[in-house]
Write a protein that binds this DNA or RNA. Structure first.
Lengths: 199, 199, 199, 199
DNA sequence: GATGAATGAGTTTTCATTCAT
DNA sequence: TATGAATGAAAACTCATTCAT
């Protein structure tokens, strides 16, 4: 029961954040998306900041779960799958809101140490995941020998940059071009001589 | 005189935005960085939103001026110069604050059409600049034949993603790796056979 | 409890309106007459306008209750009783303030549709009451045959004009003359031949 | 030149008052209807109150001039002419705004002694005018012997009440009935036996 | 006379938080 | 747990007035 209510609050926060943006997010706007009362938010969380930090934790857990849920086994395919997951959410409607919410929270990092810490941790996890895939590809002889950390940093920058542009620019975002470039310029170029992209 | 005051307001807005962040940016916090009165902000701008939209316009003008101020002539060097400008501001102190401010304002785009429009315009200008450099390099026989738009979208995503990470993650950001990857995986790979990176 | 608070707000509004006048009526001035906090006004009413419209509704309900509370049964006496109620409030102290408040609110009608609607409704109720008394008097053979609607419009104009003058001109208002004229020129003249004013 | 500017300010005040109402009348709204600057209002008038008192003076002068401009000579016709002037402005477009402005200013009398004094003076002039007409009619044997002051007070209340209703209730005002009643119940009833209304 | 810039006090409204139940 | 009522601080914005030119 207690956990159920907190879950509902997380959902309400998500909905409110997507609708109004971080700067206009109020406890009232969260309560409006919540079936119980505004006072109850304060019963479950010490303050607005406490609630938001918990919310970010919650969001990032979902994100890491998504990333780890990859159905592919081939390293190159796994990279492409991740690029698409991050940049477009595989076309999932929910993803657009999710990315919007993430963009908002990321922009708070410079002013909120708790948020920043969560994001640093998350970044490390994701880059490690990418680097692991690269190492695996190299070991399997499928990828040429690149520095896995350097590749991971650049790959992640590119796909997250594409995601941001998608959220920020909307229709005007060059997401298809950005993803095509990721495939042609980063992934395909990673392949060892004589290896082709599957799929 | 009037123009001078507006300039002072832009500066005060920048200072306040850097110090408090967009979500906590108030007319009062801007007035606190401004030597004249708070009412004067409303005399010169119809509303807070009007002021902020003008401010973004002002910021983007400075950014485009910076980008166009490149001292390099070699296409590959110009790309690398731009990557470093965007990701690190060439180490300029001012740049960190500038990038923080930009991150905040970008996060408002989904909720503010005027801001979104400015950013869409700016994005088009920057990608066109990149694509032009690529076209020039191809014509000069220095670059292999890639789709300039595809390259521009990916290159821009990568450098802006790196910038975001720098702002968001601070010390923990893998900016050096990301820039190294941009050089090795994107720019060097663009070179036509037999051509080497100068510098 | 909640209803009690709203009642207190209506009372505070009345007090503030009487003291400062509509043009100088502020939420703060209402709060000053109210034992609880200023924010609570906004908790119970969406806006100042919402509060004032509710307040007018409240005032008019009291007014209609007063009019319907007439102790007389004779039609001519009822008309005279109403004239005195409207013009002087039967000497009640409370009435002067009430009429001042009404004058202020009426002056807002051209600029506020919600206020205007309330006043149009109230006007219809009052004139119907007058016309009913006239019809009753005619049926009882006590009044000569006049058009009840025409009489009602003129009678109401005269007594409300007298009320306005009382409020506007204060001591200098010719209220006694105006009421004497209403009795001699309007009510007495309405009597059928051979009928005299009682009382 | 000086006088010309003051005249322009009076006109601008009139326009602003009609458009926004007294409660929302600001120096800026007056300046908006004025071809010169807002500061100039303060050059010509010590304060907003000073300006408004001058404005009322100005309005009442125009009103008295209108009343004295009656083309009729027959006493009964003069009364009817005045009733229509006050209640409807003889259908003049300008009159609607004029009456609206007057209603606003009258409502300020309880809070502004200078305004109240002007209105008291104006009231005395108008009632004296009516009483004079009545005296003249009695002397000429055209009216029966009524108390001229009592008639004046009632007549004036009735026509001013009708005017207020016209402004306040708009389309819903029973102005035709009220004027018909003034003619049938007040003026016609004033005629000496055997005298008929002309025209 | 005339103006644009500037100001400080004040206006309505918002909001995170607390309290009584 | 849960809530409606309540609060104080602060938000954006307004406005009569003043000032320098």
């Amino acid at each position: 029961m207690a956990g159920d209510t907190r879950e509902q609050i997380m959902d309400a926060t998500f909905a409110a954040l997507c609708e109004r943006g971080y700067a206009d997010l109020t406890m009232q706007s969260i309560a409006d998306e919540f079936e119980k009362s505004k006072s109850l938010l304060h019963y479950h969380f010490d303050s607005k900041e406490d609630l938001l930090v918990s919310f970010l934790e919650h969001l990032l857990e979902e994100f890491v779960a998504d990333v780890e849920d990859c159905p592919e086994t081939d390293p190159a395919q796994r990279l492409l799958w991740m690029a698409e997951l991050v940049a477009t959410g595989h076309g999932d409607d929910w993803a657009e809101d999710f990315h919007t919410a993430m963009l908002e929270l990321r922009a708070q990092a410079p002013y909120n140490e708790a948020i920043r810490e969560q994001l640093v941790h998350n970044d490390a996890v994701i880059r490690e995941e990418i680097a692991d895939i690269v190492r695996e590809g190299i070991e399997a002889g499928q990828f040429r020998e690149v520095d896995p950390e350097v590749f991971a940093a650049t790959f992640r920058s590119a796909i997250e940059g594409a995601q941001s542009h998608e959220v920020i620019l909307g229709e005007a975002a060059p997401t298809d071009d950005a993803l095509a470039g990721v495939e042609r310029l980063l992934v395909r170029d990673l392949l060892a001589e004589g290896v082709d992209l599957k799929g």
